[in-house]
Design a protein around this nucleic acid. Structure first.
Lengths: 351, 351
DNA sequence: ATCACCGGTGGGAGCGCTCCCACACTACCT
DNA sequence: AGGTAGTGTGGGAGCGCTCCCACCGGTGAT
């Protein structure tokens, strides 16, 4: 495993040609074996595989990419907006799923940041150069031009979190609507009646769906939907704080809060404590994401967990199918290309 | 910016050849312009640049890689041990620095997971195929064979956190020794005298340095070093809990704890509360990393912040120099290739 | 016996670039 | 006048692969 046998001249890595010579076959045959073509006799295949092993042959990706016009690479594009988006477990968990799914393939993963204009211009170049076979899009805003660019360049892409109910790209999402319902129903089942909701950024489709879930859970339970119990947040702690202050001002009888994210819940918590409310005795609190913050909050925060790792895996599956089909847009069967994964309520002492 | 001018036949992307034809020059000249060679007259350069702009030419990376035998890509290898290592802000912050530094270059970033044996084998293949020009190594254990493999393959690499004081690879690290001193001196300056230390995994060099810092800060302050005040942890919450329990058992008069990580501090906190100690009234607590946990802990945790984003940036600088020099190992000047960055104490109410 | 066919194979062409040698053409020295 | 650099340029060779056409020999149908 350490030193290899004979090499080409000058210590370079062995080439297809050398493997062919060693195995006593032609270049084409070795190529067929390497690529798993069925049109090779068993004897020949064995000979070639032996030669490959002896020489420690590893295909040259650049040559392959050039000849075959594919790159065997996909890009994960991180818009990474203003904030340190991916300090969130959301990102790392997804990466874990992506990594796991990718481990089964020959694909490599490129991480591309598209936070500012400069990076976006660079990304556009990348894509124009078709340096990747497919693209994974995470946390894309409704008005982002990226998806259109990808469509135009005919590069397969999968989006996590559709931009709207009319999303045209294949997508993987968790059940925001259902997750919100779970949270609210949980609070109601604990005897709470005045349940408020602090939303996420409403230009994010998933945040809207959570509001929908909140609304319908409330009305289905026979509580009318009091619009005054809904206050817009923006997924930040500061936003959560402000929203909670506003809510308490309007309705001092709130006995439960469903926040659209754990960070938002952290802000709400501060506002509640500042107002002298106890959690959960006076006001129960539920967050969303089940991030590290939730576990370490005082009291530990009940939260809705999304199967993010699973989402990452599914995104890769979808994307690889897409890449294999090479029918980026026109492809039929979009019905099966939008998946929604179930969420799970993690109950802790804040509710 | 939308549609391009004339293209090659069949709608493919324009090639060097086509740009050359358009500009009325030879292939070589276009190549020179693209690569910023000075051996081109101003007039010719302008003509070529115009042609490039008109055609929307973007170099084909695969062809370039094949011809020039370089990839313009570097890999960030994530050992990702047992735990979700990179859910820590450590990882994301570093990534941010890496991304920022990379944005100024043509290099692309590959993310490679090497968590299990299968992934490591795949990584070895990658490296053997020289699919990257350089490697960024984060959180490598002392006995990891990866650095040796890289040295053998003569692939430039930079490591974050040297494996020992005799580290041979270029490295970027924060001042673990100094950071620990800061923490301990801070506690002592607050009038604490019985300062305990819960260590990190002692097979991690940085953890050892923190112990050194603790020891010397204590003895420099005239307190002897009571080995009974040091208890081994492993960077986990559970380890922190156990260590704290052990410490309290030995010394009930402990009035301060310096934990080797925030997560460890979280464990220690639980143990302290379980034992009926108040933070900070009875026992002051200081962590390390200044992660999200620190801010959201109750009470908020004083912690030592490492300039991780900066570290990411420096690692890239170092690596690119290394790659440019193409003198991976033998290169002189290792003195200047190991950098240590200062830490900063973030004081909160836990101390 | 003749022919079409097919599994299996070898190897030419060519992917788009960089490298480098050769060739102007211009100074500038003897 | 002949040499000798030096600057700018064109284009051949070749990087290591995949694609595909040609070919070989063995079957089964005619």
């Amino acid at each position: 495993m350490a030193t290899h046998g004979a090499r080409g001249r000058s210590g370079g890595r062995p080439t297809l040609e050398e493997v062919a010579a060693r195995a006593g076959v032609g270049r084409g045959t070795v190529s067929r074996v390497i690529n798993g073509s069925p049109r090779v006799s068993d004897a020949t295949r064995a000979a070639v595989e032996a030669a490959v092993a002896e020489l420690g042959y590893v295909p040259n990706t650049a040559a392959r990419a050039l000849a075959a016009n594919r790159t065997d690479a996909i890009a994960l594009v991180v818009p990474e907006p203003e904030t340190r988006f991916f300090a969130e477990p959301y990102f790392s968990d997804m990466l874990k799923g992506v990594g796991a799914a990718l481990a089964d393939t020959e694909m490599q993963l490129l991480l591309i940041f598209a936070g500012n204009e400069r990076e976006r211009a660079r990304l556009a170049q990348y894509l124009a150069a078709h340096r990747v076979d497919g693209v994974l899009l995470v946390s894309v805003h409704a008005d982002d031009p990226l998806p259109d660019l990808l469509a135009q360049l005919e590069i397969p892409a999968v989006i996590s979190g559709p931009r709207s109910s009319a999303e045209t790209l294949p997508s993987v999402d968790s059940d925001n609507y259902g997750g919100a319902r779970q949270a609210v129903e949980h609070l109601l089942s604990r005897g709470r009646t005045r349940v408020a909701h602090i939303t996420g950024r409403l230009d994010v489709y998933g945040a809207q769906r959570r509001v929908d879930g909140y609304r319908e859970a409330m009305s289905d339970a026979g509580h009318g939907v009091d619009e005054g119990l809904i206050e817009a947040g923006d997924f930040t702690e500061e936003g959560g704080y402000r929203a909670m202050v506003a809510l308490l001002e309007r309705h001092s009888d709130i006995d439960a809060v469903f926040a659209a994210s754990d960070v938002t819940a952290a802000g709400a918590r501060r506002a509640l404590l500042d107002a002298g409310r106890r959690i959960p005795q006076d006001v129960a609190l539920v967050g969303y994401d089940d991030s590290a913050i939730a576990r370490h909050m005082e009291p530990p925060l009940t939260s809705v967990r999304q199967p993010i790792e699973e989402m990452g895996r599914r995104m890769i599956d979808l994307l690889l199918t897409e890449v294999a089909d090479r029918r980026p847009l026109a492809s039929r069967g979009l019905e099966r290309r939008q998946m929604v994964l179930a969420t799970e309520l993690v109950s802790r002492s804040s509710s």
